[in-house]
Structure formats: C-alpha cells, structure tokens
C-alpha cells in the first residue's frame, strides 16, 4: 500500500498512526522502570506489561498474549524472566502474570484517574521501554466502548452446501489472511463443528471473543487442511476491508467491548498495549488496552481493573486451603 497522500475526508474505512512527542527527560526513567517486554519467537515485540508488585506480578493485554508458550518475557534490566499465568479476564482484556523468583522490582504507583479531563498530558512507554516514553493528551470524553462481535475477515457465499461454505472474499491484513485462508476455499469445520450452513459458520465465529483462537478445517482443490485463526474485533476487520490499514504499524486485535476507557493521542503501536499510562507526576492512571486507529488509543482507567486485580493477587497468594476434618 504505497498510497501516501490522502485527503482527510472519511469515506467509510479509516487510516491510522500518532505525534512524535517524547516525554520530558525527568519522567522517562519512571516510565521505563516498571515495564516488561513481551516478545514473540523472532524477538519482535508482542505486547508490553506493567509491574504492579515488587515480587513480580504484572499486567498486560490478554488478547495480544493468547498463550505463554512461544513468548519471551524481559525485566526492565533486560534479563529474561520465567513467567506463569495467574488470571485472564475477558471483560477488561487484562491478563495477570507473575515472574517467578524475583523481588525488589519497581512497581508502578497507581493514582485515581477520575479527575483527568481532555487536554491532560499523559505519558506511555514505547517499544517495551527501549525508546523514549511518548507524550500525548487525553483527547476525548471518558466513556464505555460497546462490543461489536468477533470476526476473522471473510465473506461467505450465502448458499448452504454439503461440501462446506465457500469463502468469496478475504480482507487484507485480517486474521483469515494471516492464517492463509483464500477465496474459494471451502469451510469444513470451525472449532470442531461441521459447517454446511453459512449462518452456522457466522454464529460460530461471532459468538466468540476477539483474541480467541479457533481451529478451522478447510478444503482447497479437494485437499483438506487445518489452520488456527485468532479472532479480531469486527470493527477492526471492517475498517480493513479496502486495505486502508497501511504504514504506522497496524492496530490491536481487540478494539471494543470495554466497560470504560480513557482516549488519548499518544503515538503508540499495537505492541505498546498492556503498558501503563502515567500523568506528569509519574503516577500510573491507566493501562493501554487498544490501539484503534491513526489518532486513537484506548486505555482502561485504573478504577476499572485495579480493585479486581488486587483481589486476584490476594487470592493467588493465599489460595483456599483444603479443609480437613
């Protein structure tokens, strides 16, 4: 997609990216000190984590880290960490993990976010703390983001067929395209269920959460093949149908269905999600949860997840003991 110049008139689908503003020098260390780098096998940044206790509990964006196998985790000093999953919450898309055998980490200090108003400066780590922290402002009203459903980015022929439902279109940069699905492939089963009706196929996909992985069996030229597809938010897939998602690093898999968000214009990428958002005093006020488009990032206000997370940590530290009579 090398179509550089674009008028900013909206014609359905969107474009995307943010400003090159970096943080004032005194705030930079605070911002990077509590950040965990989460890498994919090839060393590419997958997501960012924020340390919430000195003994290694940290949070990230659940749908960007579907499973721990294959991911590598790095502490702020660059050392690799061994990590276990504590709790995954689909309501907020927050994942609680713990690095084992560590202590004395710099946990963020949370501060209330209710008093924030549009125009308030905010800071966030970029590239897992390897680049300077970035600066932006709270850019719109605090609000709920209603959920659309999940999608993988295919169009299906609206004919039921005993040979499986035929795919008639695959969106560019969609989960379906990433998994290798192509036009004219026939869907045989989704998550283990046979699909001879396109309505069933639609239901099997849209009833799940963005970020979930499903197994799809399909036939191409008579040959049966399997692939694994990670569902994305329907809104995200729709905005990509015409290939408007160019440059600027793309957007998050899940961009909707959040109880409450703070919108900001800090220039970040999808792999910066899961990291903390700070005020100018270096207090953490929110958790970056979705890169939505060129101008929009959503962050969960700390009030939405922190009381619950504290309880999860408490429960994890003191699991209920078996009662012996």
């Amino acid at each position: 997609m090398k179509r550089a110049l674009v008028f900013c008139l909206l014609h359905g689908p969107l474009l995307r990216a943010g400003a090159p503003a970096t943080a004032p020098p005194d705030a930079r260390q605070t911002v990077a000190a509590s950040v965990i780098r989460i890498e994919k096998p090839a060393g590419k940044l997958a997501a960012t984590g924020v340390i919430v206790t000195p003994d290694g509990y940290f949070l990230t964006k659940a749908s960007e880290v579907p499973k721990l196998a294959g991911s590598s985790f790095f502490l702020p000093d660059g050392k690799p960490a061994r990590v276990r999953e504590v709790r995954r919450d689909s309501r907020t898309d927050v994942l609680l993990l713990q690095c084992s055998g560590v202590n004395g980490l710099a946990a963020v200090k949370w501060s209330e976010s209710k008093s924030l108003a549009p125009g308030q400066w905010l800071l966030a780590p970029r590239q897992g703390g390897r680049e300077d922290a970035r600066l932006g402002v709270m850019s719109a009203r605090r609000r709920e983001i209603k959920g659309g459903s999940a999608a993988i980015g295919i169009r299906m022929a609206d004919q039921d067929s005993p040979e499986g439902v035929r795919i008639i279109g695959v969106a560019e940069d969609s989960p379906a395209a990433a998994a290798g699905l192509k036009e004219n492939d026939r869907l045989i089963s989704i998550a283990g269920e046979a699909v001879k009706k396109y309505t069933v196929a639609h239901e099997l996909i849209s009833s799940r959460e963005p970020g979930d992985e499903i197994e799809i069996e399909y036939k191409r030229g008579g040959k049966l093949t399997k692939c694994s597809v990670r569902l994305a938010s329907r809104n995200r897939v729709l905005s990509n149908w015409t290939g408007e998602d160019y440059a600027n690093g793309g957007i998050s898999i899940r961009t909707d269905n959040f109880p409450e968000i703070i919108q900001h214009d800090i220039p970040l990428g999808p792999a910066d999600m899961g990291g903390p958002v700070f005020n100018l005093l270096g207090q953490a006020v929110a958790l970056n949860i979705a890169r939505v488009d060129r101008v929009t990032t959503f962050a969960l206000p700390m009030e939405v997840f922190w009381p619950g997370v504290q309880q999860w940590i408490e429960d994890d530290r003191h699991p209920p003991k078996a009662v012996v009579k």
């Binding site: 402002v137 009203r141 488009d293 101008v295």
Partner: peptide, 13 residues
C-alpha cells in the same frame, strides 16, 4: 476523526 460519534464528541490533539 472516523466520523461523528455523539458519545465521544470532537477529538483533541
């Protein structure tokens, strides 16, 4: 950006 959204309102940068 992205069209009118009554709940969001105009977006600041």
């Amino acid at each position: 950006p992205g069209g009118y959204d009554a709940k969001r309102g105009p977006v600041l940068r």
